[in-house]
């Protein structure tokens, strides 16, 4: 067996046909480069229309909303959780303190002034939980430090001195 016969066994007739050459990725690129480049459209700078401005504003609002939502749903750190727990306990104690004071010093509503004194007592009992709720509600989306700051302020302002002093 001659080497030529071996080569014949490993090839098919017509392998050298140029029309059967597989198309490679470089072929179209080559064709593209061969063709003259189409003229690129000249970009004319234009003023933003009302629609563009409205879309930009809408995008900005959506981003702000998403940022706020992320802040709202962000997980609290352990330190913050402990701080909230301690402050909630302090507010609970203050509420109990005011309640005990009011129950010890009940006022009979005999005149208009005594009715208003009763209202003042009721408001004093409601002060601690209302401050807690207001601080949590109105500082939504703010930094945790701001929220804790408002809660600390309330804890100091609303100390039930009448109860502390044994009244």
């Amino acid at each position: 067996m001659t080497p030529d016969e071996d080569d014949d066994a490993l090839s098919w007739a017509g392998d050298t046909d140029p029309t059967l050459v597989p198309v490679t990725t470089s072929a179209p690129a080559a064709r593209k480069t061969a063709q003259p480049a189409p003229e690129a459209p000249v970009e004319v700078p234009r003023e933003p229309t009302a629609l563009d401005i409205a879309e930009d504003a809408e995008d900005a609002a959506a981003e702000a909303y998403l940022e706020a939502a992320e802040r709202d749903t962000a997980q609290l750190s352990s330190a913050m959780l402990i701080a909230y727990g301690i402050l909630a306990g302090v507010y609970l104690l203050e509420t109990v303190g005011w309640l005990v004071h009011v129950l010890r010093n009940q006022i009979a509503a005999a005149s208009v002034f005594q009715v208003t004194d009763q209202i003042v007592q009721f408001l004093a009992v409601a002060s601690a939980p209302l401050w807690l709720a207001a601080a949590l509600l109105l500082t939504r989306g703010r930094v945790a430090r701001t929220r804790v700051g408002w809660l600390l302020l309330g804890a100091f302002v609303l100390v039930p001195w009448p109860f502390v002093l044994g009244k």
Binding site: I119, L123, A133, A134, W161
Partner: peptide
């Protein structure tokens, strides 16, 4: 409304505290 309501309760608490401190 929430802030003013909260403020009115603070006034009540501070007034009662003031009276009790003086009485003490």
């Amino acid at each position: 409304a929430v802030v003013f309501l909260c403020g009115s309760t603070v006034v009540a608490a501070l007034t009662l505290s003031l009276y009790s401190l003086v009485a003490f």
